[in-house]
Design a protein around this nucleic acid. Structure first.
Lengths: 340, 340
DNA sequence: ATTAGCACTCAAGAGAAGAGAGTGCTAACA
DNA sequence: TGTTAGCACTCTCTTCTCTTGAGTGCTAAT
């Protein structure tokens, strides 16, 4: 059996109705709603064909049809058009990205919020580990007797700080010259690469100020550990409660638990992600609990590594709108990162 | 009618059963379960009295009784004992507080997580605005041509940073001496108080390096704005889904929306909070949506101002356990803050 | 004052019946 | 040969009734 234009039109109509109402769609309803120039009986025949082809399914013999996951896949691949943001929405997005001076983390939170507001799905943004970006600058500053603070700046303008203990005898000048030495050795290294060998080299070179150096190195290691993890920012998880297919409490718990356990999201997404918008529908997802949901996501060039940004919603999702929103946001975020 | 020992015992038994099962408790059940030495009929009479006194209520004439909010209030005031953390739990708590070098915000997140794990209720921690703590130290550092970073350290060891634009001609030495001047003027001031007049003074005194100063002042104002708000950290909101009284979706949405909209929590809590554990049961809460929930909370002496820490659960809550956990955590957090 | 006994009440669950939406099939039609 | 009207049939969902069982309140006996 082959997919002619009429079948396509009918499939599309059914998908649109179903996405809107979450109810099985009947032959009469589809004819009426979309002003098709054919009779309900004809549509019934076509629907029967579409079912045989695997694009539709019937919850029970005497109900309308709903699109199968394969049906959605066909729609996404062959018929969907990305729906770009409205003028208004684009403007809001530009505004909340700011001028590049804001903390990156607050910008990300705002963008996540925006995404979930615009689409009514749950959004997630994965920030790649800081450890993979380039080292640019380190500075030790005295804080109070016996304490100092160490600042670390990466090429992307990310700033980390950490308190360290130092002998009380160490003076501000000492700290400054120690910072100098650090900088000479570390400049332009990828922060993740610095780890072991380099640090040993430092320790050897700088025997004199051992205590301070040791503390500083320890602090760096500590920072690397804490920042070597991706960060996950989730927003609008409660949007899921509004989807009619999730009126079952057990189901809701299952879904929300994925979002609560941030680390799980990493297993859900493929390790490698390009900069195309990618869509995973229902059982196409690996993770068991994700098989009743869909993902729309893409990668963005972040701090040396790829970050990820995406939406999570029911299989009955407005893929066109979701994909459009994701794409716009990706473009805007990359634009912003370039400015850093 | 007066509250004798037997009535107390029966009320307590009913509350305990009801907290455990979320079902109305019958006279026979309560006698059996707690091995009371009186008959079900006697208990029925007492229950009838307790109902008249307002401590119990009947969902319908032929069902068991459930404690009224007044009943819970009586229990909390006259019979409840705070249940302290197990040895194991205390140890976990101590461990995750760390050694004072960690970022305060990550510690708070961990503590919130701990609270919700231990009690199975939703926890919230409100961090008082940074702006109210004392100013201690400011430093400008060159970043790249035309950019510098400004660090601000408060008495509690909180560190903020912000990027600023500077004329390319400004050198590291200039930045250092500007930092000095800032420090002389601002040291020991409450950061919140610095605002207007002082800044004007600074601007006048330092006409020479106007550009840098202006930028720095702007950055400080910006920081003050962003940090002048309390921060709210919420954890374990999904625990609410496990309570049998919340099997109604609409109710769940209502409750979770309070937690999602962080700012709302502030209206829910009284402005002034002491360091006693305070309990608000159901309709004792002001905010409309909170009237079906209970709060157990207390204040902690934080950065100059009081922070707040608490649990949110159903009216049918294990108040003893919740209050005990809150108290332990408050003590531990204050201990930690002293070490800063 | 306490208890046993018994009639009464009410929610929750199990069937049964009816309504309604939608299908598949057949036969007629262009 | 593709399209359509007509009609019997299917299955869910809702409503109603009936039954069951836990639990009460009252009365009379201890």
């Amino acid at each position: 059996m082959t997919m002619d234009e009429r079948k396509k039109l009918i499939l599309e109509s059914i998908i649109k109705d179903y996405v809107e109402t979450a109810e099985p769609v009947g032959s009469r309803a589809v004819v009426k709603k979309h002003n098709l120039k054919i009779s309900a009986a004809t549509v019934r025949n076509e629907m029967s064909d579409l079912e045989e082809m695997g694009f539709l399914e019937q919850p029970h013999t005497s109900s309308g049809r709903i699109p199968s996951e394969l049906g959605f896949r066909y729609y996404v691949d062959c018929m969907m058009e990305k729906e770009s943001l409205s003028h208004n929405e684009s403007e809001v997005l530009q505004n909340l990205l700011g001028d590049g001076k804001q903390e990156w983390s607050t910008v990300v939170e705002r963008v996540g919020h925006f995404l979930s507001q615009v689409t009514n799905y749950a959004s997630f943004i994965i920030i790649p580990p800081f450890g993979l970006s380039e080292f640019r600058y380190l500075q030790l500053l005295p804080l109070e007797p016996g304490k100092a603070v160490m600042f670390l700046v990466s090429d992307m303008g990310m700033i980390l700080h950490n308190k360290i203990d130092i002998p009380e005898s160490v003076k501000e000048e000492d700290l400054r010259s120690i910072s100098q030495i650090f900088n000479q050795i570390l400049r332009k290294r990828r922060i993740g690469d610095v780890r072991r060998s380099e640090m040993q080299e430092l320790r050897d070179t700088l025997k004199r100020r051992r205590r301070v150096i040791d503390q500083a190195l320890e602090a760096i290691e500590h920072m690397l550990e804490n920042s070597g993890e991706e960060r996950v920012v989730i927003s609008g998880a409660l949007n899921i409660l509004n989807e009619p297919e999730f009126k079952d409490l057990e189901r809701i718990k299952r879904i929300l638990s994925i979002l609560e356990e941030e680390s799980l999201l990493r297993h859900v997404l493929p390790d490698y992600i390009g900069d195309e918008v990618d869509i995973r529908i229902g059982k196409e997802n690996q993770e068991e609990r994700m098989k009743e949901m869909s993902l729309v996501f893409t990668g963005y060039k972040g701090f040396g590594d790829m970050g990820k940004i995406g939406l999570m919603g029911p299989v009955r999702m407005e893929y066109g709108k979701a994909a459009g929103a994701i794409e716009s946001v990706r473009r805007a975020v990359e634009e912003l990162l370039k400015r850093f």
